[in-house]
């Protein structure tokens, strides 16, 4: 039965989709729904960054800026130029991809982690421009009055409708990320991460692939930024500092470097944890993040998802067979 096989292959993805999409049926609480919405936009960025870091083994410390391009692109084009929000979102994503290509082409040709430095500098420049180009960005005051998204007569200003929209897109990105991992391109990325010379001698144009995945991750981030501002109707530069880039890297690592499902767990934790911590003392949040990042790297390099692997390994040992479920979030190595 092909349908049954399909269901079994994608059981985790289907289960997760059902749970997340049915959430608005159980709660109309705006606070909960907004947390879920932020989780969705965070997930979009982290999925892309996870592909870049976990699959291709390159760090970007400028992903806040790519999200910022989407956010400000949408904000400026819709409020100042009265452009259609969807078109604005598309154009912003194209811009983000172009900028990513511009940064990636020269730096990803080099051996080592030059991309990290270039994206760091780039992120800082974007932030400075957002603050300084007052005629365009309104400086630190930010831009308000950003319209809601609509399709025909459906208004996504409604929290429940927005939930379905934003999670629909996030789930799509999750799906295509999962697809990528198990493909020719995904394997070549993991290969070049582990032994670049070997991958090259097997015919992989490694710098091209690295640039490509950087551009994809920039597009993911940009789209996330666009959705975010259409939801909160306001944007200001403080959301797109270097610290946010660092938090994004933290989210990827804590969730599980190189494991697509790790992006889901990481985003959930990193959205919920500050909500919890702010009841005590907000100042400590980033300290906790920084320490968690270090501890994860040392003690749980596979991130939150590797708990599952650990459990699976133990179970396998007991069962003495290799018939474990390979349908779910299959552990992906990657250091």
């Amino acid at each position: 039965m092909p349908i049954l096989a399909f269901l079994r292959r994608h059981v985790w993805y289907i289960a997760f989709s059902i749970v997340i999409l049915s959430a608005p049926l159980f709660t109309g609480n705006i606070y909960y729904l907004s947390i879920l919405a932020f989780m969705a936009t965070r997930l979009m960025i982290v999925l892309g960054l996870n592909l870049l870091m976990g699959q291709a083994g390159q760090i970007s410390l400028g992903h806040a800026a790519f999200a910022g391009i989407g956010a400000y692109g949408s904000a400026i084009m819709t409020t100042r130029w009265s452009m259609d929000p969807w078109l604005a979102m598309l154009l912003s994503a194209v811009l983000a991809a172009a900028v990513a290509g511009l940064i990636g082409v020269p730096t990803l040709k080099l051996k080592g982690h030059y991309l990290a430095m270039a994206t760091l500098g780039f992120g800082e420049i974007v932030y400075i421009l957002l603050v300084q180009l007052k005629w365009l960005t309104n400086g630190t005051d930010g831009i308000g009055g950003i319209p809601s998204l609509t399709i025909g007569s459906i208004d996504f200003g409604n929290a429940q409708m927005f939930h379905w929209l934003v999670w629909g897109v996030a789930l799509l990105m999750l799906r295509i990320s999962l697809n990528l991992v198990d493909s020719r391109v995904g394997r070549s990325l993991r290969g070049l991460h582990r032994a670049e010379i070997a991958a090259m001698s097997l015919g992989v144009n490694t710098s091209f692939r690295k640039v490509q995945v950087l551009m994809v991750s920039a597009v993911f981030a940009s789209i996330a930024g666009s959705f975010y501002v259409h939801y909160v109707h306001y944007v200001s530069p403080v959301s797109y500092t270097i610290i946010f880039s660092v938090i994004l890297v933290t989210t990827v690592v804590i969730g599980g470097l190189g494991n697509v499902w790790g992006a889901v767990w990481g985003s959930a934790l990193m959205i919920l944890l500050p909500e919890y911590l702010k009841r005590y003392n907000q100042d400590y949040t980033q300290l906790v993040f920084g320490v968690m990042l270090i501890l994860t790297m040392i003690f749980l390099p596979g991130g939150l998802v590797s708990f599952r692997t650990l459990v699976a390994k133990v179970r396998e040992r007991f069962r003495g067979s290799r018939a474990g479920p390979v349908t779910g979030p299959e552990p992906r190595g990657g250091s």
Binding site: N179, L180, S183, R184, V185, G186, R187, S188, R190, G191, R194, A195, A198, A199, L202, G203, V204, Q212, V213, V216, G333, G334, S335
Partner: peptide
Amino acid sequence: FDDMSVLDNVKVGRYARGHAGIFSA
């Protein structure tokens, strides 16, 4: 490629004989 399966290592070897790009993936 240490962190990949033996089979996946060989699949990377088939890279040059394949065509699937990032979008078809």
